[in-house]
Design a protein around this nucleic acid. Structure first.
Lengths: 224, 224
DNA sequence: GACTTTAGTTTCAGTTGGCTACTAATTGCC
DNA sequence: GGCAATTAGTAGCCAACTGAAACTAAAGTC
């Protein structure tokens, strides 16, 4: 028995459900809306004639008070059926919001909570899991981590952002070597002293063209 | 002016559109339906209460006469608007069918055509492009190529299948080395003599568990 | 028997990636 | 001032991986 059914409203043929993620206080947070005791992801009924991505951006603005630095559609979820609007199908999106932008005016009932205590169930739990998975794979294809940092940043901050998003630690020397080889950042002539320790040089995102490699096949991830 | 609008029928809120791909005669083929002069992908209106994947499987069976060896949802497409059923949204699926299975009884107006001469336009052209892209990335995560071969096969056949699906040549020694390292196949004691040349040993797909590696980040694919 | 064709292996060199260990520059504390 | 602690950044080693070329092996063709 879902909310929409209880209310007696006709469920829309599909809804747009949004996973907004943000790095806050060293942990990945997700924006949820609370309806009394139950938590759910922000969702909206589609407006006819409006592009899906546009609807999702509007939804983000309405609930988080800001537009995501990066957003992408996951796919359409039909299972499990448990959904706050009783929509048979949810078209799900993931987006990221920088820590600074989480200070924006939130929508009614919306708040940022740490991933671990999102308290979702049913379809929304599945969507959240898929969202994090997709975000992590997209880190290698889109400059998502850079969008979550100020325009200049230290390499330690960048590495920290990657670690927070991925959820596991990275090796400092290797991280910097790969970054160097990819010509993605360029040093500024500024340095930042952050309390203790040697000051760090500030960098800016400044990708240059490189030849695209990659030929062989990897079988490593191919489970049975 | 689309077909559904011309016919005066009410378009469904969303349709399920299917890209079926198959290796035939050394080239990747796609299943299209022809409506007089215009070609389009197989599509169907959703049945309420039916899971999306189930609907898509039914659609495959109806049009290709067989169920795909592998199938996955792409995502929901809203743009471009041009669609044979005038559906505002298409939930798209990709599936693959082995060459042998393309001999099944095809649906009305359906036929296999080489990718290059699919002759699609509008939303279906976008869906086809996305389908091939997704298939190629999934080759590293799902045993798709193996599903398209008989239960025993030579390593040259396997490599040929990968090359056909990927669309570019692979290096023989490297291919076999990677395969070896992944413990994915095991040799049978049979050999096949195919006209000229040394007979090839037959292998079967027989994946064993391996430790999952992967720690660092790759920046190689991260364009500006 | 020599040539061609396909299968399968070996070797080599260049690249990558993780690890340890180092140097450098700053703050805090005595 | 001087030394420990802390953070930034680099250097070198080694094992693993990859692409290319060159090799051996086994069949058919002429």
């Amino acid at each position: 028995m879902t909310a929409a059914v209880r209310r007696g409203t006709t469920p829309p043929p599909y809804s747009i459900d949004l996973v907004l993620l943000a790095p806050r206080e060293g942990a990945l947070h997700v924006l949820i809306e609370s309806d009394g005791r139950t938590a759910h992801l922000p969702w909206g009924a589609p407006k006819s004639g409006e592009a899906l991505l546009t609807s999702s951006r509007q939804l983000a603005k309405r609930t988080a008070g800001t537009e995501p630095g990066w957003m992408e559609q996951l796919h359409a979820f039909g299972d499990p059926l448990k959904h706050p609007a009783a929509a048979p199908v949810s078209i799900a999106f993931v987006g990221v919001v920088s820590a600074a932008a989480t200070e924006g005016r939130l929508g009614d009932k919306a708040r940022w909570v740490p991933m671990a205590s999102a308290g979702l169930s049913g379809r929304h739990a599945a969507i959240l899991a898929a969202a994090v998975e997709t975000l992590r794979t997209r880190l290698e294809y889109a400059p998502i981590a850079f969008k979550l940092l100020p325009s200049t940043f230290t390499l330690s901050e960048l590495q920290g952002m990657y670690e927070l998003l991925l959820g596991w630690p990275l090796h400092k020397a290797s991280f910097r070597r790969s970054l160097q080889a990819a010509y993605l950042v360029e040093p500024t002539d500024e340095w930042r002293s952050e309390g203790r320790g040697r000051p760090a040089q500030l960098y800016r995102f400044s990708p240059r063209k490189r030849r695209q490699g990659r030929r062989g096949v990897r079988f490593d991830f191919l489970g049975g």
